[in-house]
Amino acid sequence: MNAVGVDLKKLRAPALLLVLLLLLIALPHARPGYAVVLVYTILMYIVLTVSWVLFSAPTGYVSLAPAAFFGVGIYTSAILGMKLPLPVVICIGGLASAFLALLVGALTLRLKGIYFAIFTFGLVELIKHFVLWYELKYTGTRGRFLLPVGNNTIYYVMLAILVALLLTTYFIKRSKYGLALQSIGEDEEAAAHTGINVTLLKIITFAISAVFTGAAGAIWAIRLTYIDPYIAFDVNNSFMPVLMAIFGGLGQLYGPILGAVVFSFLREVLITRFPYYYMLLIGTILLVSILYLPNGLVGLIQRWRRRIWGGQHANT
């Protein structure tokens, strides 16, 4: 293949992504209404999933903390929403989550395997019940209302968060820190003895992933309009990103994105079509995919490709 051909091939993926981004930007003008709500819901799940993948996929630390970070974002928005301009609120939501992640990370990232998962799971419940207790005891309220903002605003903010997240993830993955994160997942002790400051790297990456989850929570709060601790710190928001990422396949970055798109679309459709059987259907789909799609949708696609192209593309 000549040099020009290689260059063209290199340009193909960014060009495709740019077209996709333009289409997404144009969507609210072409198709206002329900489509916008549906798409920003999907975008929200992509943000949650990719943020989770950013830290947990390379390092192998299964975090069930996303609901905590998301909830902190939601509460930031609920408390500050009427006092400060929206972009500022979103940023503070992200930073507040990152601050929590720094704290939690410093304390707990030495826990190994299932203990880390259990700890982060408990953390969400601790925060939920603490906020519940605090509100009943000191503010005498339960739940808060938020001023609604136009759907298009929510849509564009969510899209901006996603773009920022994808760029961040891309640069981390390509940098030497991406390699280092992966080496932590492979063998943490060896990584430390190869000169990598494993503790610092884990904590900072954990915090970076929390920034985006928190920011997404801050804008999502406005879409919810009414929130209370049960809504804000819903454990489903911890499990969904994990399930979506695994559903898509963890190997490449596009796997979790694909997983989030397909799964959250399915979820929205099932909720509206079969409200009474929705959990049953979702549960079954998940169970089947965990049992029969060990490498997620990506693995399935690769298998099909191999069958069609006869093994030549086995490693793409």
């Binding site: 030497k176 280092a180 492979e186 190869t194 990598i196």
Partner: peptide, 19 residues
């Protein structure tokens, strides 16, 4: 204790990059 799923070259590169 090698980084099992990473290519040999990347294993060594990590030493240069961080150590």
């Amino acid at each position: 204790k090698v980084f099992a799923n990473m290519p040999a070259l990347e294993n060594v590169m990590l030493g240069s990059l961080f150590g």
